[in-house]
């Protein structure tokens, strides 16, 4: 049996889904349709230029370094969150343990920064 908390959260999310879907359905019912189709109407919008090729091609992913940074700190969060809840009980010993962990992580952060991970060419 899921807890009351989980059920109330699920109910809330269901209400949001119904609301958003209801708005889309209402728009579908109330919306107008053009009587005549035009061949330019459903082309890709590029400010009046004719679109060259499709968008689904290889692109330069220079944001990928950012994603690496993010994974690094997201894993950190996995360890920080439980400690944060019990920081008072863990006391100085817990504080020193987590400082060591975060310290290692920040050394890695400093190294990546020095290597120019965020400098764009």
């Amino acid at each position: 049996m899921p807890s009351d908390q989980a059920v109330s959260l699920a109910i809330f999310l269901a209400v949001t889904v119904v609301t958003a879907a209801g708005m889309l359905v209402a728009a579908r019912l109330l919306g107008v349709r053009a009587r005549k189709e035009h061949r330019l109407k459903d082309t890709t919008y590029e400010c009046g230029e004719t679109a060259t090729g499709v968008t689904w091609v290889r692109f330069h992913a220079r944001y990928y370094v950012v994603a690496l940074f993010f994974v690094l700190f997201d894993v950190e969060a996995v360890f920080l969150l439980p400690w944060a809840l019990g920081a008072r009980d863990a006391g100085p010993a817990g504080f020193f343990a987590i400082t060591g962990f975060v310290g290692v992580l920040m050394v890695g952060w400093l190294w990546a920064l020095r290597k120019g991970a965020l400098r764009w060419q």
């Binding site: 728009a27 109330l30 919306g31 053009a34 109407k41 459903d42 919008y45 499709v54």
Partner: peptide, 12 residues
């Protein structure tokens, strides 16, 4: 107004 607008989806 937005509710009445036609929903256009690009062909591709």
């Amino acid at each position: 107004k937005l509710m009445q607008k036609e929903s256009i989806r690009p062909a591709n």
